[in-house]
């Protein structure tokens, strides 16, 4: 009987204490923090939470000069300049850069730019020689075609200042190219840009069937392997 009373007393005490605590909690909670269903007005998502906030996409492709953000629309000359889309009509297209495939345009005869400043009959000094460069990592090996380059440029544009014309003499990596060295002197600035869409234009020779990526030292020495 005594023990029963004790048990009842204990439960009662416990219940009281719990209710007191919960009361204290509800007292501490200000009214404004009570959950209430609120509908955010549409279009008010914070700019910090927008999708892919770092992606900079051009507002308009091939905009005419007065609307392109670089030419001053207050300058009368900007309105006289030829809009690019007028000139690009009928040219082969790509997904990057000017959205024009300049090499194809030249090779298929859509364009015939002069090789000499005054004489339109001068023919380009073209060399057809492909250079294969093996790539350490898993990317396909690089084929450098001299043909499209010599159709546009002269040997002296690249040799010997940018590329030493000797096998194995040129160390090239993508960081250097992105920083404007080696191929990056032109590619990524005026000739086709360096984007995910254009990797395979250079990295075009698939690795052999049995090729495996070299393991890093940290992986080879890993005792838990």
């Amino acid at each position: 009987m005594k023990s029963l009373f004790k048990a009842i007393a204990v439960t009662a005490l416990y219940a009281v204490s719990v209710s007191m605590v919960s009361a204290a909690e509800t007292k501490a909670t200000p009214k404004s923090m009570e959950l209430k269903e609120v509908d955010a007005p549409s279009g008010t998502v914070s700019s910090a939470n927008t999708f892919n906030r770092l992606l900079k996409k051009p507002k308009q492709k091939n905009a005419p000069p007065p609307e392109d953000g670089i030419h001053d629309p207050d300058n009368e000359g900007s309105h006289v300049l030829q809009p690019p889309l007028v000139a690009y009509e009928g040219l082969p297209t790509t997904d990057f850069g000017n959205y024009v495939d300049w090499v194809q345009s030249l090779q298929k005869g859509f364009l015939n730019p002069r090789y000499d400043r005054v004489d339109p009959t001068v023919e380009a000094l073209v060399m057809d020689l492909d250079i294969v460069r093996e790539v350490k990592a898993s990317m396909p090996d690089v084929i450098f075609p001299h043909k499209p380059h010599t159709q546009w440029l002269h040997c002296s544009n690249c040799h010997p200042k940018i590329f030493i014309p000797q096998k194995g003499a040129n160390q090239i990596n993508m960081s250097a190219i992105l920083l404007g060295q080696k191929c990056g002197v032109c590619h990524g600035k005026v000739s086709f840009p360096i984007t995910t869409l254009s990797c395979k234009k250079c990295h075009s020779k698939p690795k052999p069937e049995d090729w495996k990526p070299p393991l890093s030292a940290a992986s080879q020495k890993n005792p838990w392997r």
Partner: peptide, 23 residues
């Protein structure tokens, strides 16, 4: 005003070599 040089316009008429090698 600063100068804006459009590569696209010039490359339709001249190859890179004319300006970058000859000039």
């Amino acid at each position: 005003r600063p100068v804006v040089f459009p590569h696209w316009y010039h490359r339709i008429r001249f190859r890179c070599k004319v300006c970058h090698a000859d000039l």
